[in-house]
Design a protein around this nucleic acid. Structure first.
Length: 488
RNA sequence: GCGGGCGUAGCUUAAUGGUAAAGCCCCAGCCUUCCAAGCUGGUCAUGUGGGUCCGAUUCCCAUCGCCCGCUCCA
């Protein structure tokens, strides 16, 4: 089986067929930003829908949410992003490699969690004693550079009276901030989850590999709330569920794996974390993360209870986050405003949270890469995308075999009849073989062709993308036939 | 941000200090009764901005973007 080894081939296919374009290409492009073309947007919609179907629609214990990208700045103070979501980096003058200051503190490998900027800046003061991890030179560093990983913007059109806001770096905090609302407005009971799909923004230090790591990206996140003590089994449950999801949508088993986070790799609030990784065809041929599933304990809800207690300080300091110290936690925090009362057991507690967090763009890329195939047909190379039916941008293409003898009229009628039910495409130009191959490259699973026999007995051929085999189906049975085949 | 590589049509490649060439794709027409057939015609390019020069796609500088590595990370 032919295998793509270069990302270039994927990028080329994506552009040629209208899946993905570089953003602002007519102006020379904008780094790290990409646009989804006509086929790409359908693919992405289908990826979202498949996630939503699996995580929300098919479950009795998960509800959906769509929170705003802009949120109260205290959200990010409480979540820790405002303080910790920044890196301080220096560059070794000898070997030109860059290192995070907090990684220079000692020779021993430490945890990789971000540290507050102030701490890092303090560390930076003692740089002349630090060792470059790459070349071993001591104290040969540039001035420390601070990186703010959150995008900033301002609210209010009057420039003298605006409020500094952040574009969310993750959708999760919108879920935590609405925990109480969902609890009060629906009749959910723990254990239950809140799911959300949406854009997030991070000023990554480096972007990478096409749409794999971009500064604007789309996440599909679930926060699943459960009683402390049951969190280990729910963590296990969601690991399996999420891994299965990728396989059920056609990702090849040999290209998917788990990667457990070591204890010293975990964020300080996380009890456990595992990545679902896909073997992307990047230069190194390396495994790369599609999704992380973490046990975040009760950290987030407790932090937001602290944040809620800090509101006065927010007004006193006129919204200057750097001047604000998060208030300490109440002694009886477990009875706080974001706690949960279980009226079966009469217990009140802050729930634990299991968080599966997937990258929609990354997943779309993985599905694209995994579906790509080339095969020899009569000495010609046939390029095709073997998408799972539910992901295919176009489900059905309708052709007249030739553009005469009344075939186009019949085909158009069939097309008009089907397009209300499936994403369809009509084509009557050129040789039918060419039209088939074009649909192969777009990943369309079924092609319907009206031929001479149709005029006699009202049947058409239905051609399968993967096998190229054809069956005859009565025109009035087409809708049912396709429904069955597409499992819609 | 550093180092390396690369930017010519939608794609893949030519060529040149002096009219930018071809194949595929695409479009129109003809022909075609099932897998990128054929014929005719057609659209479309030197990433951007400067400099040198009579003249720059070519040489120089800057810039933007992509890939690989370092680094980092969902």
């Amino acid at each position: 089986m032919a295998k793509i080894t270069k990302l270039d081939d994927i990028v080329s296919l994506c552009k040629r067929r209208g899946f993905i374009f570089q953003s602002s290409e007519i102006y020379g492009g904008l780094a790290s930003c990409y646009d989804y073309g006509p086929l790409g947007v359908e693919l992405k919609r289908n990826v979202r829908a498949a996630w939503w179907n699996s995580v929300v629609q098919m479950r009795d214990d998960v509800v959906g949410l769509d929170s705003s990208i802009l949120m109260h700045p205290l959200v990010w103070k409480a979540s820790g992003h405002a303080d910790k979501f920044a890196d301080v980096i220096v560059e070794c003058k000898k070997c030109n490699t860059r290192s995070r200051v907090d990684h220079l503190t000692s020779g021993a490998e430490e945890h990789t969690e971000h540290v507050p900027v102030e701490t890092a800046m303090t560390d930076a003061a003692a740089l002349d004693k630090k060792v470059c991890p790459n070349c071993g030179q001591v104290g040969q560093f540039t001035e420390p550079m601070a990186f703010r990983l959150m995008f900033e913007t301002q609210m209010g059109a009057n420039v003298d009276d605006t409020m500094r806001l952040f574009l969310r770096p993750e959708t999760a905090q919108g879920i935590f901030a609405n925990f109480r609302n969902v609890l009060d407005s629906t009749r959910v009971r723990i254990p239950f989850g809140i799911a959300q799909i949406g854009k997030s923004f991070r000023n990554e230090v480096t972007t990478k590999a096409f749409i794999f790591r971009t500064r604007e990206f789309e996440q599909a996140e679930l926060e699943f709330f459960c009683e402390p003590g049951t969190d280990d089994e729910w963590y296990e449950h969601w690991r399996q569920q999420r891994f299965e999801w990728y396989l059920s949508l056609g990702i090849k088993k040999e290209n998917l794996r788990f990667r457990e986070h070591d204890l010293d790799e975990l964020a300080h609030y996380a009890k456990a974390c595992v990545d679902v990784e896909y073997r992307f065809p990047f230069g190194s041929g390396d495994w790369q993360e599609l999704e992380g599933i973490a046990n975040r304990t009760d950290f987030d809800l407790r932090q937001h209870q602290r944040g809620m207690r800090t509101l006065n300080s927010w007004f006193e300091k006129k919204g200057d986050l750097s001047q604000i110290e998060l208030n300490s936690e109440a002694d009886n925090y477990h009875k706080g405003p974001l706690s949960y009362f279980d009226d079966q057991t009469k217990k009140r507690y802050i729930p634990y949270v299991i968080e599966p967090s997937a990258g929609i763009d990354r997943s779309a890329l993985a599905f694209l890469v995994d579906a790509y195939d080339e095969e020899e047909v009569r000495g010609e190379t046939r390029n095709l995308l073997r998408f799972h039916h539910s992901l295919a941008p176009t489900k059905v293409a309708v052709f007249p075999l030739v553009k005469k003898d009344g075939m186009p009229e019949i085909a158009v009628k069939i097309y008009d009849d089907l397009k209300g039910h499936f994403t369809c495409f009509y084509d009557e130009k050129g040789a039918v073989g060419r039209r088939y191959r074009r649909q192969d490259e777009a990943g369309t699973p079924f092609c319907i062709t009206v031929d001479g026999q149709t005029i006699e007995d009202s049947t058409v051929t239905v051609r399968q993308r993967d096998s190229m085999e054809q069956v005859r189906v009565a025109t009035d049975q087409l809708k049912n036939y396709l429904r069955g085949e597409l499992e819609l």
